Amino acid sequence: MPDAPLNIADASFDLIGIDGDDTLWHDIGNYNLTEEKYRTILSAYCDLENMGDILLKTERKNLKIFGFGVKGYTLSLIETAIEITNGQIKAEGIQQIIDLGKEMMSGSIDILDNVIEALELLRPSYKIIVITKGDLFHQEAKFARSGLTHFFDGLEVVSNKDVQTYGALLSRYKIAPENFLMVGNSLPSDILPVLELGAWGVHIPYHTVWEMEHSDKDISDISRAVTLDNLVDVPNLLLGDK
């Protein structure tokens, strides 16, 4: 039996998974912009000093009920608005918040720099799928509108990214963990679970991190993981002079 590869460049991959939000296309900026508009709506009713903390607390609580995605986020915005205005927010204000959610659901898709170049280089040599979490309808719509569908062999929308989810996915694709590479911007969602499973991970940090995706974990000393600056660095690493 051959020795196990010591680094990603020497490994053999039967499947590469790539995250969608903030890896292929910009996403968290839409949430930040929405929150700015949300603050403007609520400023007519109350002091907003602790709004961010209350909203985050509400989101954490509601994840167990609504899951990830814009629809659950919009419901959390409404619930938070009712709480911090002591129920004084009017129907007009609630409608404005709902409209913010609709804007997010139907907004344009802004592809990150060098993504197309990276996919053009990877596509001839690898089977590639998008693995993203959130609302099924919204993620399917974003993928369809992205203009990237022809680069991929499939789209997997999951409710959560944990060891069990990745394990079930690899079992369905009949891929051994040592032959799977996951690429994404989130350590807790894209990298740490696959490393625990025995697979490989490429972390490509995004300049803004959602609080619930934050991690202080250092992966620099893990041979099956690497941090790169840009998606185009992935084919450069894997293909080299091949």
Rank of each mutant, 00 (worst) to 15 (best):
D47M: 10
V70A: 10
R224E: 12
E156Y: 11
Q139R: 10
D99Q: 15
G101W: 12
L170G: 03
H203Q: 01
G93W: 05
P2L: 14
S159G: 15
T227R: 02
I222Q: 07
N7G: 12
K57Y: 14
G147C: 09
E120T: 10
I204L: 06
K37G: 06
A168T: 10
T34Y: 11
M182F: 04
Y45K: 09
A144P: 08
K217L: 07
W210Q: 13
I8M: 12
A91G: 09
L48I: 12
G93L: 11
E92I: 08
H207K: 05
R39A: 00
V194F: 13
Y126L: 02
L228H: 02
A81I: 14
Q96G: 12
A168E: 13
L100S: 02
S215Q: 10
I28T: 07
E35P: 02
P193H: 03
V115C: 13
A81H: 06
R60L: 07
M105T: 02
R145V: 00
N185P: 13
Y38D: 10
L42N: 02
I41G: 01
L195C: 04
S220Q: 06
S76I: 08
G69F: 12
L24P: 02
L15V: 13
A199S: 15
H207N: 09
L100A: 03
F180R: 04
R145G: 04
R145M: 13
K61D: 03
G167N: 04
R172Q: 13
S76E: 12
E83S: 12
V226Y: 06
A81F: 03
D135V: 00
F152R: 10
V115R: 09
K37I: 01
H214Q: 08
D19Q: 00
L121P: 00
D135L: 08
I84T: 07
A199V: 05
L15C: 06
T227D: 07
A9G: 04
L192H: 01
